[in-house]
Design a protein around this nucleic acid. Structure first.
Lengths: 213, 213
DNA sequence: AACTAACGGAGCGATTCGCTCCGCTTTGAA
DNA sequence: TTCAAAGCGGAGCGAATCGCTCCGTTAGTT
């Protein structure tokens, strides 16, 4: 028997997924009305669950950080250092980790968020260190390189726009095409290539953006 | 000493570059006011040059197509098939080819635009065919794969957002970090890797999006 | 000095924003 | 069967922003 609580919970999940989708399509200007509509939920219900738009985005960020950390732990659980790293990257990219980029700097970062982010950094560091020790990751690649790669691949302009145009028929093909790009990028991370240009990127590139202006 | 004409021309160039930048940062919602301000030009001047916002975006698309074609011709002029392809990809990606994605489907496609796009397709096909013949490009990679890769890499969420936050001090480091990602992806295009997943993407993924809904 | 072309931006009506509020439906205890 | 309460969807509020027009000002030219 599905009662009130079930429906509420389903609505909440739908809201969060809708928020991710709309953010991906509309960027920083994503409107609450659009999010509610896509979730198939009234605006009133959205505002009963979250006091403000910012609170919704904060919750979304928390879930994304959780997903990042879970993917990293799942990767570390794999005994093969390369397979573990690849699982992590693929997991983050396909989850759409990059969709959150537009909200960086527009919401207040809670203590909980920075704690989870710090833990995520440590986990990724360990993944990278382990892969380097095993010699299965291209020498000069750092954790920051990987974070930026995930961000770069973590949005699909193609999928976002097809969805905006209502061409849902093309979505499976787009997802497959995207997986090919990810595979290409992952192969570029393997050893045996020429040295990378420039010097390894500093961590401030990735972390500073979340601090308020 | 033709100051008047010079200024007008400089303004026009500034407008187009500003439009590219703002489009990259704000996506489809980019406002004419933001574009004019970034270009250091009054709104009035913008509207003296372009009758409507759409006309500005059409001109921008034309220039992007021109750049694409010039980069492809420059690549074909290189006698080394791989170097030529790499020059083309790097040229398109660093130009910010991907910033235009948000306007796809929102402006009318002129006959001139589709003619140039068709020519671009042919040039890229030739680049890819030549590289395959020389055995310097991973076997299953198609022109569409490359187009999508350029689109995926042709925006930098990192750079866009740093600019939005006014962290101009970090821009050089961000550009360098980006060049590393591009190098990684290019290396993934070389032969000698496992087969790519899925089947080659169909051309409609890239072309259909520009036709009006 | 007089002319005028190009300039910047105030301000128009229309639209969209985040959010509040309320009438309606569903639920479950009385 | 009744009915208070809880949860729902969405109309509509004031504020903000949109694309664009229009005009007073500036600066090169004669």
């Amino acid at each position: 028997m599905t009662t009130r609580k079930d429906l509420t919970e389903r609505n909440d999940r739908a809201l969060l997924q809708a928020a991710r989708d709309v953010l991906a399509e509309d960027g920083a200007h994503a409107s609450v009305a659009a999010i509610a509509t896509r979730a198939g939920v009234g605006i009133g219900s959205l505002y009963r669950r979250y006091k403000t738009k910012e609170e919704l985005f904060q919750q979304l960020s928390l879930l994304s950080l959780d997903h990042w950390n879970e993917a990293a732990e799942q990767g570390l659980a794999d005994s093969d250092p390369w397979a573990g790293l690849a699982v992590f990257i693929r997991g983050c990219v396909e989850f759409g980790q990059g969709s959150l980029a537009p909200v960086a700097g527009t919401i207040e970062v809670t203590r909980e968020m920075s704690a989870k982010a710090r833990r995520g950094d440590e986990l990724l560091d360990e993944l990278v260190r382990r892969a380097h020790r095993a010699g299965v990751l291209r020498g000069e690649v750092t954790s920051v390189d990987i974070s930026l790669l995930i961000e770069q691949l973590g949005r699909s302009p193609l999928v976002d726009q097809l969805r905006k145009q209502g061409r849902d028929d093309l979505l499976p093909a787009a997802a497959e095409a995207r997986r090919r790009l990810i595979a290409i990028a992952l192969d570029g991370l393997r050893p045996g290539h020429d040295p990378l240009p420039g010097s390894p990127p500093g961590g401030e590139l990735f972390t500073d953006r979340w601090s308020q202006q």
